[in-house]
Every structure is written in C-alpha cells, then in structure tokens.
Design a protein around this nucleic acid. Structure first.
Lengths: 217, 217
DNA sequence: TACTACATACCGACCGACCGGTATGTATGT
DNA sequence: ACATACATACCGGTCGGTCGGTATGTAGTA
C-alpha cells in the first residue's frame, strides 16, 4: 500500500494553493480548458483535496474570482498612486501605475476576471456575477477621485465619473486582448497611453492638437 | 436501421452552416466549452459532415476566424461610413457605425475573434494567428483614413495612425467584456462614446473642457 | 497524564458521461 | 465509373465528480 507517511508540505493551505493555481492556469488556458486535474497538479494537491474545499468546479471559479477581488483590492489599496493631494494627479498616477504593472508573460499581467467573464458570461451566472463584482468594484474605487477632480476643476462634463471609471477598465481589458493576440504586452501599454491622453484632454491638460506649421488654425 | 432517406435540407452548404453555427455558438459559450456535437446540432448536420469539412476542431476554429474576417470585411466595405469626403468625417462615421451595430443579445454584436483570442492565445497558435490577422487586418483599414485626417489637418501628433487604429479595436473589445459582465450592451456603447470624444479631441473638435462658470480659465 | 470522541483535512481509486476523432457505408451529381 | 458530400456507429481517452477511508489536531473526561 503506497500510503505516503510523508504528508504534503504545509498542510492546511491547500485551498489557497488551489486558488493561486487557478489564478495563473486559468489566465493561461482559460476556464473551460483548465481541468480539475490541471489545477490539482499545479497546486500540488490531490483531487480529494480539491473537492474537499470546493463543491464543484464552478464553485472554484466563484472562489477564484472572489480571491482575485480580495488580493487585487489589497494591491491597489497599498499602491503609491493615492499619495498626491490633487485628485486628478491621483487618477493620472493610477493610470501610470496600471501601465507600469503590464509586462512579462501574458498570464502575469492580464485580468483573471475579465478572462473568465468572456468565457462563462452566458453559461455560469454565478461566476459571471463574481467577476462583474470584482471589475465594477474596482472601478468604483476610482470614481471618487475622478469626481473630486471634476468638481475641483469645475469641469462641466458630458460624462460621469462612473462612466469614465468603467471606461478605464474597458480600455485595460481590450488592451489585454490585443496583447494576447500578438503575445506583446506593448499593445496593452499603448492603449493605456491613449487613455492617459484622453483623460488629460478631458481635464484641459496640454494635449491640444498642434499643427506642424502653427498652433493657431 | 434508422437511416433517414429525407436528406438534410439544402445539401451542399454544410460547411457554411457549420461556420455560421460556430460564429454564434462560440460567441455564446466560448470555444473550449463548445463541443463538436453542439456545433453539429446547431448547424443541423452530423458529426460525419463536420469531420468531412474540417480535419480537427482546431481547424474549424481557424476556418471560423477566417470566415469571420471575410464576412466582416464585406460588411464594413459596404457600410456607408466611407461616404464623407473629409477623412476625419469618415473616421467619426466609422465609430458611429460601430456604435450603432452594438445591441441585442450578446452573441449578436460581440466579436468572435476577440473571444477566441482570449481563450486560445496560449494553447492554439494557429487559431490565435487567424484571429490576430482578422483584428489587425480590420484595424489596418482604418489607418489610411486616420493618417489622411492627420495629414490634412496638419496635426503634429505624438501618436501614430496605426496605434490609434489599434486602440479603437481595444476599446471595442474591452467594451464587449463589460457588456458581457452585466448583460447590458449600453456599457459597450458607453466606451465607444468615450472613444469618439477622445478622437474628436485629438483633432481639435469641440470637446475642450468647459468650466461650469466660464469657458476661459 | 492518558484515554476517548469527534471534527477537519486530505487521499486516491473509481465511476459514468461525454469528448474529439475515426471507420465505414451510402446517396447524389457528373 | 467515379468523386464528392454526407450519415451512422463506435472507439479510446478524458472529464467532472463520488466515495470510503486515513492522518492530524483538539476538547473533554477522569
């Protein structure tokens, strides 16, 4: 009987290791293409451990989305872009921060919940809702700074802070898709650059069009 | 032997019907979650017909991406946004056209190749490349108008036409993700509105920030 | 301290359903 | 007659999920 007396290393954290494996493997292969065995192997646990912690594969999907929401919330909450006193500077620092963390391998910088949303939006409402909560919850953390910047500068905008916050997430998600299409993270950063230029323009910073011959036209 | 003498309706177009089924079903369920049997049932053909026309499921994925590229090329080539004499008007008319065709059910307006890219970018290079060719091939059709608009207006830009064309696709793809997250196509249109505002700003059209008290500041 | 009772965490063999793909046969047009 | 375009049956393998069992830790009791 091949019962290994040597128990698994770090007993008790199988759940976390599965969630971390899900975070990385699903970003590489997608949710449907990732098997439970894939996750167990990547996490170094057995199938029994998997179904001890998660009732179904879908339940793991929900848990992975929630884990993503928690960990990214902590990451952004502790990021330095909150430092500036000027709210607009905070918004621009946020965008710069987002741009800065794009790089390396695709599975390292792309968004788990964006990936899962795309796949399961029509077939697994529970996962989709958990993903949506993560995306829009994060967007909501931008809203206050955007609105404060708008009010402070007296911008009489046709757009709302809520809408612009959502748009930033759309641009990021779209940039990730282009990056995946070519395997080049530059394409994601490129779209963030356009987004930064857009936001600066909305707030009247120096992005007015310049003619090559004259600045008046 | 339950061999139905009644042959399938419209013999000879099984391939096209499979491609159309793939276009719609994959947009709903994703590529990996769509089985060959799903496609056959949706197309009203048998598994034999499927493997007669496509060597593997992946080969269908490539063919579906190419079919998507062909049909959308035809759609955009025949669209009315090419009419204006002014190249910038054509660009803005394109964006308006894109906005106008967003609506209804998710699987009716979202992008097949964007969806597939997200899923298979790391595991099926052939499909990914076919998707990338569709996305960037379409972006390239915008490049001429954008560059013409830039040259005509003498804009001394920090961005390239190629980059802006790619960004339009990123915004659309990202908008689709947000729309899928909530089931509401308004979110996709909302991001296109931001994109339109951005492009207008790049070309000096009336989107300068307005303070609520005065237009000078 | 020693023993019991019990919950939690985990193991891995196993199951039935389903998957992509194949083998083989047949209807139809030329 | 022959090639093309299908249909049907089926295979080997993989999938998500189940289940009986076993370590391990903890609380209670005496």
């Amino acid at each position: 009987m091949p019962r290994p007396t040597k128990q698994s290393p770090e007993r008790g954290d199988a759940r976390t290791r599965l969630l971390e494996a899900a975070r990385d493997v699903i970003r590489q292969k997608g949710f449907a293409a990732t098997s439970v065995d894939d996750l167990c192997q990547s996490a170094g646990v057995t199938k029994g451990a998997f179904f001890h912690h998660f009732k179904t594969k879908d339940a793991l999907g929900v848990a992975a989305a929630n884990y993503w929401a928690e960990t990214t919330s902590a990451l952004f909450a502790g990021a330095p872009y909150h430092k500036p006193d000027d709210p607009l500077d905070r918004v621009l620092a946020y965008l710069d921060f987002r741009k800065g963390i794009i790089g390396g391998e695709t599975f390292e910088y792309t968004c788990l919940v964006g990936t899962m949303t795309q796949e399961v939006h029509d077939s697994a409402p529970a996962i989709r809702d958990a993903c949506a909560a993560s995306i829009f919850g994060h967007a909501a953390t931008l809203e206050a700074d955007i609105e404060a910047a708008r009010a402070q500068r007296g911008i009489d905008a046709e757009w709302t802070a809520e809408s612009l916050a959502r748009h930033t997430q759309a641009v990021l998600q779209g940039g990730f898709i282009l990056a995946k299409a070519t395997g080049d993270s530059d394409l994601a950063r490129e779209s963030v650059d356009h987004l930064i230029r857009y936001v600066r323009g909305l707030f009247g910073l120096d992005v007015e069009p310049q003619t090559s011959t004259t600045r008046e036209n």
